[in-house]
Structures are given as structure tokens and as C-alpha cells.
């Protein structure tokens, strides 16, 4: 079953008849998030985020391991994984969507909207994200930022630390895609 899911994701939940020559993969994308409060700033980075884009239909899929975020303090890592995200129960976050009006042949950088579904803790939300896309030879770089509302994903913050964690989390991403050909 899992093998089928993997193959489905790779062939890109990835929609139908498209060949791999239309697909580009980023195995080491970076997603980071920031929580700014007067009490404390919290930052974490995940440098092993997977993403595949299909330039024939502008579909994009992203998957990341929640336990691969790196924090400055070990207690932050523990609270994030054990109490807030519950990464044993919900090990991955995913995004599936489409880059609107993306012209894959355009050499100049282009700012586009990515519209899709973000799933964290098995809770899915429709979101729109602004991204800057640059093309360098046959590679693409997608970068941008967006905001996540903590309560949208039923993340329970105990009242005692509520003042230390922002209600809206700023999230940044950067993916370098290369051709996904065997």
C-alpha cells in the first residue's frame, strides 16, 4: 500500500499522462518558520523538503517530514514534535496545488500565485501563496513566504506558554528544481 502511495506521489499524484521530462524535482528544498512574540522568537528550518513540479500542467506537490525541523533549543524541538505537531501521529505535512499562469519557458523571473491545499496534522486548508520563480538554464527556483494561522490546524498551545508562541506563523520556502529524468 505504501509503495503504491509513493509511486502515486512520484508520478505526481502527479497527474496522469505527463512524462518525467516535464517534471522537475527539488529533494533538498528549505522551509523555515518564525514565531515572533514579545516574550520570545522561535525559528526552525527544514532543509530536506521534497517538491515536484510538472511544467506541462503547472502542478506542484510538496512533502516534508515534521521531525526534520531544526531548532535552536532542544526544548523547542521537543514541544513542537511531541505537543504541538504530534509528529509521531502526523509525520508529514503536504501541499498540492497549481502555479497559476506559470510560463515555464520565460527566462525573466516571474511572480505567480500558487493555489492549493496545505495539509498539516491531517487537516487540510485551501491557501494561496505568492512565489517568485526564476529560471536558470534547465532549473527553476521557487521562493516566497506565507502565513499560517495556528488554530486552523487545531494546534493546542497550553495557556502557560501561549504568550511565547505567535498566533500567526510566518513561513518561508526556497526550492531548487532540477530535471526529474531517469
Amino acid at each position: 500500500m505504501n509503495r503504491i502511495l509513493i509511486l502515486l506521489f512520484v508520478s505526481f499524484s502527479l497527474l496522469g499522462s505527463n512524462t518525467k521530462s516535464n517534471q522537475f524535482i527539488a529533494r533538498q528544498g528549505q522551509v523555515s518558520f518564525f514565531s515572533y512574540t514579545t516574550a520570545e522568537n522561535i525559528e526552525a528550518k527544514n532543509n530536506q523538503v521534497l517538491s515536484i513540479i510538472d511544467v506541462s500542467n503547472n502542478e506542484i506537490a510538496i512533502s516534508m517530514l515534521m521531525n526534520a525541523f531544526i531548532f535552536k533549543k532542544s526544548l523547542m524541538y521537543e514541544h513542537f514534535n511531541e505537543s504541538y505537531i504530534e509528529s509521531d501521529l502526523y509525520p508529514k505535512a503536504t501541499f498540492k496545488g497549481q502555479i497559476l499562469d506559470f510560463d515555464s519557458s520565460q527566462v525573466e523571473s516571474q511572480t505567480r500565485i500558487v493555489k492549493g491545499t496545505l495539509t498539516i496534522r491531517n487537516i487540510s486548508k485551501e491557501i494561496e501563496i505568492k512565489t517568485i520563480i526564476t529560471k536558470d538554464n534547465n532549473t527553476y527556483i521557487l521562493e516566497g513566504d506565507f502565513e499560517i494561522v495556528v488554530k486552523d490546524f487545531d494546534i493546542k498551545i497550553p495557556p502557560i506558554v501561549a504568550s511565547n508562541i505567535a498566533k500567526i506563523i510566518t513561513t518561508k520556502f526556497r526550492f531548487e528544481y532540477e530535471s526529474y529524468e531517469e
Binding site: 509513493i6 506521489f9 524535482i25 529533494r27 523538503v49 521534497l50 516534508m64 526534520a68 531544526i70
Partner: peptide
């Protein structure tokens, strides 16, 4: 070992 995406991930 952190798990598996498209590859096995080690940090």
C-alpha cells in the same frame, strides 16, 4: 534517520 520522503532522510 528521520524517515522517508522520496529518499531516506538522515540528519
Amino acid at each position: 534517520c528521520k524517515g522517508f520522503l522520496h529518499d531516506v532522510i538522515f540528519l
